[in-house]
Simulated assay, not measured.
Amino acid sequence: MIKYKFNVGDALERAGFNMYKAKTTGLISQETLKKIKNEDTNISAKSLNSLCLILDMQPKDIFIYEETQEDLKQKQKIY
């Protein structure tokens, strides 16, 4: 399962990026910002690109992969 390494919503706010900026800049949609604040990692590559731009980070700095039991079950179906 893909997870955030840290509270990305808080990091965006510290960078000055809030709902108003989301609305006025169009870099990240308000819906995506809500997902981020709820720790939902199901965001688009375009949104990920914007996150990297705003936070001055690489995707590997933002996300981590932790294998879950569900992931293991899916893996077994493949092999």
Rank of each mutant, 00 (worst) to 15 (best):
residue 76 Q to L: 06
residue 7 N to F: 00
residue 68 T to P: 11
residue 16 G to R: 09
residue 68 T to M: 10
residue 6 F to Y: 07
residue 25 T to G: 07
residue 28 I to K: 04
residue 61 D to I: 02
residue 69 Q to E: 12
residue 55 L to C: 03
residue 77 K to N: 13
residue 3 K to Y: 04
residue 19 M to K: 15
residue 2 I to L: 07
residue 52 C to F: 06
residue 62 I to S: 01
residue 46 K to Y: 10
residue 32 T to W: 08
residue 15 A to V: 02
residue 60 K to D: 14
residue 32 T to K: 09
residue 28 I to Q: 04
residue 12 L to H: 01
residue 33 L to H: 08
residue 49 N to T: 14
residue 70 E to T: 13
residue 51 L to H: 00
residue 72 L to V: 14
residue 65 Y to I: 03
residue 56 D to N: 11
residue 39 E to R: 05
residue 62 I to W: 01
residue 54 I to A: 07
residue 58 Q to E: 15
residue 9 G to Q: 03
residue 37 K to N: 08
residue 51 L to E: 02
residue 64 I to R: 14
residue 21 K to G: 12
residue 1 M to K: 09
residue 40 D to T: 07
residue 66 E to Y: 02
residue 70 E to R: 10
residue 40 D to Y: 00
residue 6 F to Q: 09
residue 54 I to Y: 03
residue 8 V to P: 00
residue 59 P to C: 03
residue 37 K to M: 02
residue 55 L to S: 06
residue 66 E to L: 08
residue 7 N to V: 01
residue 63 F to R: 04
residue 10 D to F: 11
residue 25 T to H: 07
residue 49 N to S: 15
residue 69 Q to F: 05
residue 50 S to F: 05
residue 51 L to P: 04
residue 48 L to V: 05
residue 79 Y to E: 15
residue 46 K to P: 09
residue 2 I to A: 05
residue 67 E to P: 01
residue 14 R to Y: 10
residue 65 Y to S: 06
residue 61 D to N: 04
residue 61 D to S: 02
residue 15 A to L: 04
residue 31 E to V: 12
residue 42 N to P: 05
residue 74 Q to D: 15
residue 29 S to V: 03
residue 17 F to T: 04
residue 23 K to V: 12
residue 24 T to C: 00
residue 54 I to L: 06
residue 39 E to S: 07
residue 14 R to G: 10
residue 13 E to P: 07
residue 59 P to Y: 01
residue 24 T to A: 00
residue 76 Q to Y: 06
residue 23 K to T: 14
residue 70 E to S: 11
residue 56 D to G: 08
residue 78 I to Y: 13
residue 30 Q to G: 11
residue 50 S to W: 05
residue 14 R to W: 08
residue 45 A to K: 15
residue 55 L to I: 05
residue 24 T to H: 03
residue 35 K to N: 14
residue 64 I to Y: 09
residue 16 G to K: 08
residue 43 I to S: 02
residue 64 I to P: 08
residue 14 R to M: 13
residue 25 T to C: 05
residue 66 E to P: 07
residue 4 Y to V: 02
residue 57 M to L: 10
residue 31 E to P: 12
residue 12 L to N: 04
residue 15 A to Y: 00
residue 65 Y to W: 06
residue 16 G to N: 12
residue 21 K to C: 13
residue 54 I to Q: 07
residue 36 I to M: 02
residue 1 M to G: 11
residue 46 K to V: 13
residue 7 N to W: 02
residue 55 L to D: 09
residue 17 F to H: 06
residue 63 F to M: 08
residue 69 Q to A: 11
